[in-house]
Design a protein around this nucleic acid. Structure first.
Length: 502
RNA sequence: CGGGGCAUAGCGCAGUCUGGUAGCGCACCUGCUUUGGGAGCAGGGGGUCGCAAGUUCGAAUCUUGCUGCCCCGACCA
């Protein structure tokens, strides 16, 4: 079972001291700094604070009506479910529930990057224009780059990407081929001043991106670094509940000659894509894939089937290489992009290493992007129904939505509290709807925010010592005995997550 | 950046043509009733009508300028 993401919890805990209302909770500051608290599951930490996620105390501003500006379903649902709020064109605030999703996506991405041998660091959002003058991109990048000046009238910019900066970091410290290969990544906010931002966080100006940068002595080893990210991406998207297909891509303004986009199929996709149906069923590389081994056969298998975006599509080749009943032509959303671009930056910026022969040569580089903020929207595009979002279990903001149908009833209240405590102790994240809204409103709201498992506690069932559980994805409900409910729900949550494990 | 549209309460909208006390539904607050799929009744709060000039006795409404936002296209994680 993967580790639960701590950042969301940390930020939540950090907010507590600012509110006098919580000052009666004792000892939490000390508890928080203890190692055992941090190593425990998220739920256990919250429980330790004695501050459960009661909806009555939470901040979840959902909307019953759809804001007029939202065109596509993910944008509508993200606004309605209180995940995001637009602050300016293409610029969004992430509300608590949305932030939890974003952190979970980040964490899956992080785990797979780490597994593939990439090393995390964190570069700033603001960069010096001088760095970009070195590579020549300061003039090339155009108006998409947000240019700013500091108080000394120095030219700065809000980074749209980090090739220059990582190259600068690399060249300052790495001088020998013995330190290669190296792959450094960070997960940081980027800004691209899109002419027309749209579709919410799918195509925003400010967006969160995981960008990794590989450094190798020559093209062959760079190819291996590329393959490692290729495999990591296949695993990452699968764990997020997505079937992403690598497609040959144009390398765009970043440049280079080996490049693939990872595309998921969705009706609202921005681009037209064509591929062989076989790709949809190819097995995802397993968790124990050896990243040190030759990954070429694995990658080549994926690349042996036809797959292309409309820009790279050739009708003739498509029809010649794919039998008619296997031809898929659909719309797709780009969720990742990997490039090999050789010495495009290392050469002009002087990032050189000495080879075994003592000769210095520019390193061969690649860059590898995934947009977690965009993924949140893409996942909703791929997983929703008329009632709202259906989160894949691994990235759901909470595992369980616990509904108390009668907030003023001592019996249901006690049953909910007991269930809540038992589930949290088992490491299950629970959002407890203890509000006094009506049943219908609670059900609709819970469906909207899409938690994988709903637990409904009402006076009727309780009279027979039962509660009801419902899975959001399939909609199945069943009554189960109260005394085994916690164990059963825990099992459902674990099974739901297990279904996404690869 | 070309083309089109919109801007009135947190959200969805009417009112603008034809200038005269700023409205409706949802949400919010109070009370009572209700309580297993977005309850009912009664009462209540919330608005520089995007901004600025102008015309007028009087501007949400007419004029001009500006700004913001959305949609289509070209471009992109």
């Amino acid at each position: 079972m993967q580790q639960e993401p701590l950042p969301a919890v940390c930020s939540y805990a950090a907010m507590i001291p600012s509110s006098a209302a919580f000052s009666s909770a004792q000892g939490w500051v000390l508890s928080f700094s203890s190692g055992s608290a941090l190593s425990a599951g998220t739920g256990a930490i919250l429980d330790m604070f004695g501050f459960p996620m009661r909806l009555s105390n939470y901040f979840l501003p959902t909307l019953r009506e759809t804001p007029a500006e939202a065109e596509i379903v993910s944008h509508r649902l993200m606004l309605r479910a209180g995940l995001i709020r637009q602050e300016s064109a293409g610029i969004y605030a992430w509300m608590p529930l949305g932030l939890r999703v974003l952190r979970k996506i980040e964490q899956v991405v992080r785990e797979e990057q780490d597994r593939a041998g990439a090393i995390e660091l964190l570069m700033p959002t603001i960069q010096s224009a001088d760095l970009w003058r070195e590579s020549g991109r300061y003039d090339d990048y155009g108006k998409e780059m947000l240019r700013i000046q500091d108080r000394h009238e120095r030219d700065m910019l809000f980074g749209p990407t980090n090739e220059e900066m990582i190259t600068e970091i690399f060249r300052a410290s790495v001088k020998s081929y013995r330190d290669l290969p190296l792959n450094l990544y960070h997960i940081q906010w980027k800004f691209r001043d899109e002419v027309r931002p749209r579709f919410g966080v799918m195509r925003s100006r400010e967006f969160l991106m995981k960008d990794a940068y590989s450094f190798d002595l020559d093209k062959d080893s760079a190819r291996h670094s590329y393959n490692r990210m290729f495999v990591a991406y296949l695993r990452t998207f699968k764990r997020l509940g997505l079937t992403a297909i690598p497609m040959k891509a144009e390398s765009g303004p970043i440049g280079g000659d080996m490049s693939h986009e990872f595309i998921i199929l969705a009706d609202t996709g921005e681009s037209e894509v064509f591929c062989d149906r076989q790709l949809l069923g190819l097995p995802t590389p397993p968790i124990d894939v050896d990243f040190g081994s030759d990954l070429n056969p694995l990658v080549e298998e994926w690349l042996s089937f036809y797959a292309a975006t409309s820009e790279m599509h050739e009708d003739g080749r498509f029809e010649a290489s794919v039998p008619e009943d296997r031809r898929v032509s659909a719309r797709g959303i780009e969720v990742g992009h990997i490039f090999y671009f050789g010495t495009k930056y290392s050469e002009p910026m002087g990032a050189k290493v000495a080879g075994p022969d003592g000769e210095e040569r520019p390193v061969h580089m690649g860059s590898y992007g995934i947009g977690p903020s965009r993924l949140a929207a893409a996942i909703i595009e791929a997983s929703h129904d008329d009632g709202g979002i259906i989160w894949p279990a691994p990235i759901a903001p909470f595992d369980v939505g616990l509904i108390n149908l009668r907030a003023d009833d001592a019996g249901t209240g006690a049953a909910c509290e007991a269930l809540y405590a038992a589930l949290e102790a088992a490491g299950v994240e629970v959002l407890y709807d203890d509000t006094d809204a009506r049943a219908g409103a609670k059900f609709a709201n819970m469906d909207l925010i899409g938690l994988p498992v709903q637990v409904v506690v009402g006076p009727k069932g309780l009279a027979e010592n039962t509660i009801e559980v419902k899975t959001r994805a399939g909609g199945e409900r069943k009554s189960i005995p109260l005394d085994t409910a916690a164990a059963e729900v825990e099992g459902m949550v674990k099974a739901a997550k297990q279904a996404f494990a690869v």
